[in-house]
Nucleic acid binder design. Sequence first.
RNA 1: GCCGCCGUGGCGAAAUUGGCAGACGUGCAGGACUUAGAAUCCUGUGCCGCGAGGCGUAGCGGUUCAAAUCCGCUCGGCGGCACCA
Length: 809
Amino acid sequence: MDFHSVEHKWQARWEKAKLNQFDKKSERKKWYVLEMFSYPSGAKLHIGHWYNYGPTDTYARFKRMQGFNVFQPMGFDAFGLPAENYAIKTGIHPKDSTEKNIATMEGQLRAMGAMFDWSAEVKTCEENYYKWTQWMFLQLYKKGLAYRKEAPVNWCPSCQTVLANEQAEGGRCERCGTEVVRKNLTQWFFKITDYAEELLSGLDALDWPEKTKNMQRNWIGRSTGCEIEFECDSGDKLRVFTPRCDTVFGVTYVVLAPEHPLARKLTTPEQAEAVEAYIAQTAKANEIERLSSTREKTGVFTGSYCTNPVNGKKIPVWLADYVLASYGTGAVMAVPAHDERDYAFATKYNLPIVKVIEKKGGETELPFTEDGIMVGSLQFDGLFGEEARAEVAAYISKLGKGGKKVNYRLRDWLVSRQRYWGAPIPVVHCPVCGDVPVPEKDLPVRLPYDVEFRPDGKSPLAKNEKFMHTVCPKCGGEAMRDPDTLDTFVCSSWYYLRYADAHNEREPFSREAVDKMLPVDVYVGGAEHACMHLLYARFFTKALRDMGYLDFDEPFRRLVHQGVILGPDGNRMSKSHGNIVSPDEYVETYGADAFRLYLMFGFSYTEGGPWNDDGIKAIARFMDRVEKLVLKVHSYKAGKDEAFGAEEKALEYAKNYAIDRVTKDTEAFSFNTALARIMEYVNALYKYDSLAEKNISLLKADVRDLVLMLAPFAPHFCEELHEAIGGKRFVFEERYPVADPKALVLDEKEYAVQVNSKIVCKAMVANGLANEEIEKLALSLPEVQEKLAGKTVKKCIVVAGRLVNLIVG
RNA sequence: GCCGCCGUGGCGAAAUUGGCAGACGUGCAGGACUUAGAAUCCUGUGCCGCGAGGCGUAGCGGUUCAAAUCCGCUCGGCGGCACCA
């Protein structure tokens, strides 16, 4: 078969017949299959694209043949840093390079032959899309879910630019190697923390990989504990958070983060110099350094004291940068006896260590951080673990000094980017009215083309006078635009909604379209998005629901992560490893179908693994075998009164078994085993075909079923075969074969016969035989009798359809 | 350090979830066809042993009539989080 002309032929016919489009008028049940959209890079499609989109398309086509009205859209996550970096390097404008890359990629994606519904294509960098991204921002703002505050950015003093975290790995600028410093800027945040609890609890009901759910749980980081107020001699009140309030009698000092609002206020004149020096020193240290747990702890005494509310003891207040300003209250009660960090710090600075928890039935070695029995804690002595904490928390609450509290690690989402290639933040800063959102009717705030995006210390947009100067929508006075753009994760947080109504000019999507097509039934993409994209998208869905634009809670019902195809050497493919395998040459030699078949057959889909050349030849051979068989059987002439005997029955079993298993495996994204079952079926057909006497009309029907069965896996190839054997419609307009349960019931099955759990022999057992009969049958076997000589049977275990085990002694 | 996942033939991998380990495919060996090779087809193929038989799912131990699968410890690999009090 000439694969290339066959691919072109069917792709053109599918296109003409609009076969790949979602049928908005159909009554069939919708099935929304979504792959994570692509970033339009200049390079060609790599194996990762093929591995994500090829097998998932097989799944989509399979659902279509099952009678679902499948919606499988594709688009481009087109804003973002790489295009801008490329522009800085080459001088080619991000818009130009991105548009060019999209055009190239569209062509390649079409050539894959996936049934993408291009009529719903979305490109996030186009006005008709980012207009609505800005609209989303405004809705969140109206709802109080967008706010502005100061936050540090990574700043490279040499490149004069803000760096994303991944560009500042190891504390150095990825481009020039200069040490990155922290700089404070006023930036926009989305209040995702408002949804922390729901984002956490919602995970339970989702059909997602457990691993991913766990990562999100971890990321959200719910911690239950107690807030406790320590009153300072100055009268200031320090609140701390602790999940271990049962250790509160062992507090020997309190520590504030250096950025804590009371840090300077609590510093006594004698300590002022040391404290100022310490604050300056920690401000210099960047985020990465500070977060390293191996770093030696440092700190400084403020000179002030506060009082432990449970025992009235006076304890010193320290500053230390091992306490994070952004978590809990930014202050911590230190219990060196029962916390490793506090222990290390107390040892270094000679602070007292007071044991208040003892190990149940054993030596208590400090620091002892497990649950234990309270000691030296007045009325609480003898209490243990959870009960102890409940009692102490209740007491603190009674004292009016705090009480139970839940904290989350999840931080609000910083969405400002000091970058050019993104959606401008639709806010005007007016000297009179302050921050004023741009009225919806004035959207989009257009991203100007003519901008100096080479870095020189300012946001690129800030240098464009024409863009920056505007009038205040509220008072009409002179005002300035926000010079920042939105994080590209904002764009990708709602694209799956836009697909449903991609050409709507009046709103981001109509309620009707979304009600009909959402939520996404199956979402397939890389596991690297487990925490960011997938969490943000869930947040958007919930926020939009609360604003009345949707009525579902979760955007993605089922989630599947494809594995990673590694280089032949077992390393991740990369230029530096020199191990990149390009799909192109394989597609050229063997065709698109063979290539995707190999990707499905050679790997466990969710595992991936090292690339290996050998398998693709085997796939080509398999396709050859199928083609030969199909054409050969098609050339046969059927006779009259054809026999239906044991051979035919065996063939029907083989077919129905294959259908049954392929259906289940494809549903489970277990493409390798699905194809193994189809191969077995092909072997069975060959075997039957080799018989002298055969039922031709049965064989013809079974071969046709083979073509249907294989169609989602090798779409062009099977269209061609389907046509060759007289198919009048597209193969994808046919129904996927359904297994006949009657054909799956065999008259007899082979059982393993065991004596004392060791296999002795095999025996054919008639279907439906009672357990006692099976036991009798087993006992009568000569191999069993031999083992049984002089012993009695104590017990007999029968596993239906599998084995019989005689326990003798 | 913490959390999670994984470890099965020469290789890619299966195993209906506790029930015949190694499906399917590669590779290898032998054979058929061929002047020869390629392609194709057939047969064999976990390991040890000529054999009967024994041993085998990283290692050790446990539960069970029965363990790749469940439990405990050890070793090795991968992913995530990483001073979150």
